[in-house]
Amino acid sequence: MTIRDPLAPESAPAESAGAVAVQKPPGPGGPPARPGRLRGRSKGHQVTWRQALRKDWRLYTFLVLPVVFLIIFRYVPMLGNVIAFRRFRPGGSMFGDEWVGLYYVEMFINDPTFWRVFTNTLILGGLTLIIVFPLPVILALLLNELRSRKFKRFVQTVTYLPHFMSIVIVAGVVLQLTSLNGTINQILAGVGMDQISFMQDPSWFRPIYVSSEIWQTVGWGTILYLAALTTIDDQLYEAARIDGANRWSQTWHITLPGIRPTMVVLLILNIGQFMAVGFEKILLLYNPLIYSTADVISTYLYRVGIQSGSYSYSTAIGLFEALIGLTLVLSANAISRRVVGSSLW
């Protein structure tokens, strides 16, 4: 995976070795257009910042705007999280005015609503992970068994489509299908059952949410698995067939292990998103009648923060959520490196 590459310390020496090998000074024929750069590179890592800036300053100018962007729009808000521990005065500094310690942390720990949305977050995140995550693997395996390339491409085209829809459209579709005159109630009426007001009944929110996730993400989720499937060596299948393995055991013992690294990486990435479950979608779908199952941490802090203006309190909640997310992804990565041997970094 891409993401593993940049941070893998073991890959760095190999890369620079390659660079050195390729970028030998071009001999007497070529004019020494950039002698500094070539000399510096052949020395490997011994370049000081001063030398690096002098010979590659043009390249560093490429970095100026993006780095300024990252600092202002990514890292300043991270620092802005200090208002979780400081009182914020409207019109005052975005970093707050005076320290209040763990006042807001205690506040949410003693807030029963917080624990309700915390539980909802865990349940929705868990359901998504357990139900939605394995489905692209299964769909990819089914697609892989298709003989007709045309039909395969057709299925791919159709199932990728929902991925390109705005979340607002998805919410609109869900609301229409589950409305009293929508298709699901038409089917219920057709088999002689009573109509259900799905979006006003808390017990239906979780199934509806998970189904809409399946509809929107499973097809697109197969892409990386299909790519991984094409890299599995055909000789493995031959050997297995000579040993008398049937299709099922070929799938179990060759195909699945072949896509395991992809599964692990995607699992870790999904765990990283665990706490942020479908914020935008839930915000569009829910209503006060179904808060008891639909309200999650991110939607709660949106209401507390943006709608009620309790900035510090909701920042404390947001920081807590983000820290759990970070911890989850780091531990998932560490565990998978130790147990499975593949990891993001």
């Binding site: 390249l59 300043v76 808000p77 620092l79 802005g80 900035y311 909701s314 947001g318 959520e321």
Partner: peptide, 30 residues
């Protein structure tokens, strides 16, 4: 560019934001 000094630092600067971000309210205030 592999010869860029500080390359790993700049990559890390970007990748870290994938896993941790400022959150709704600090962004809003910004």
């Amino acid at each position: 560019r592999t010869y860029l000094k500080g390359r790993q630092f700049f990559i890390g600067l970007a990748v870290f934001t994938m896993f941790f971000n400022g959150g709704l309210i600090p962004n809003y205030l910004l």
